[in-house]
Amino acid sequence: MTQTTIDPADFRRVLGNYPTGVCVITAMDADNRPAGMVVGSFTSVSLDPPLVGFFPDKRSTSWPMIEQAGHFCVNVLGIDQQDVCRAVTAKGDEKFVGVEYVISDHNLPVISNSLACIECRLYSVTEAGDHWFVMGEVLRMESVREEGPMLFHRGKYGAFAEVI
């Protein structure tokens, strides 16, 4: 098999043409404090059993805390939640400053006013290059409101516009 060399900058530029949604993955850390990370790589995987997945970077400092919890919540952000996105991308103890959330029956931080929340049990973690492929078995899910989603496209955040 011949290995092809792909320039990382070209890889990001070309794949940046594909828009993604923006989600915050949350859990409670070992000290019972909220842990979280922003991802644009969330997807449905299976209906039977109900599985979803996302791809955290292996260099993430938040992912090990979420993995250790064994459960996580996917919070789908709306276009009006840029402040939540910015807060959760902060380092250390600043991640949840100003972010409203409630603790679910599964002991997961559910971000208030997100478009949807999907609570999961960790199902599997598979190596995928410089990322992990994480799958979660859905335990509970809820569509909270019908606003437009936050999208990420070509390195920028934006909104969905319906084509008529």
Rank of each mutant, 00 (worst) to 15 (best):
G16V: 08
V52S: 07
K58W: 05
M28F: 11
N17V: 07
N75G: 11
S46K: 04
A69F: 02
V22A: 05
S62G: 05
G36F: 01
G21Q: 07
L15E: 03
T43E: 12
D83Q: 13
G16K: 06
G78T: 03
R13Q: 14
S41G: 14
G40Y: 02
P56N: 04
W63N: 08
D7C: 09
F72A: 00
P50M: 12
I66T: 03
D57E: 13
D80A: 14
D31E: 15
A9H: 13
L51I: 03
A35E: 03
T26N: 02
G53W: 01
Q68S: 13
G70V: 01
R59S: 15
D83T: 12
P34I: 05
A35Q: 00
P8G: 11
S60E: 06
G40M: 04
D31V: 03
S41L: 02
V45C: 05
G78A: 11
M65E: 15
S44D: 06
G70H: 01
V24H: 05
C73R: 03
P8A: 09
P19M: 10
G36W: 01
F11P: 07
S60V: 08
V38N: 03
D83A: 14
S41P: 05
C23V: 14
V22R: 06
P19C: 07
V22E: 09
D29N: 15
D57N: 14
T20D: 06
I79R: 13
Q68G: 11
V76D: 08
D31Y: 07
M28H: 07
S60L: 07
P49F: 01
V14S: 07
F11I: 07
F11Y: 15
T61I: 13
G16Y: 04
P49I: 05
D57P: 07
I6V: 15
F11V: 08
V22H: 03
M65G: 09
L47P: 04
D80I: 00
N32L: 11
L77I: 07
S62Y: 07
T43D: 10
F55K: 08
D10F: 11
S62D: 12
R12H: 13
S46R: 04
V14A: 08
D7H: 11
Q81K: 01
E67Q: 15
T26G: 05
P49R: 10
P19F: 12
D7F: 10
M65D: 14
L15I: 14
P19K: 11
I25P: 04
T61D: 12
V39A: 10
N32A: 15
W63M: 06
P19W: 11
V76Y: 02
M28Q: 11
P8N: 12
P56A: 06
T26R: 00
V52L: 09
R12A: 12
P34A: 06
T20N: 06
A9L: 14
Y18M: 14
L47W: 02
V45G: 10
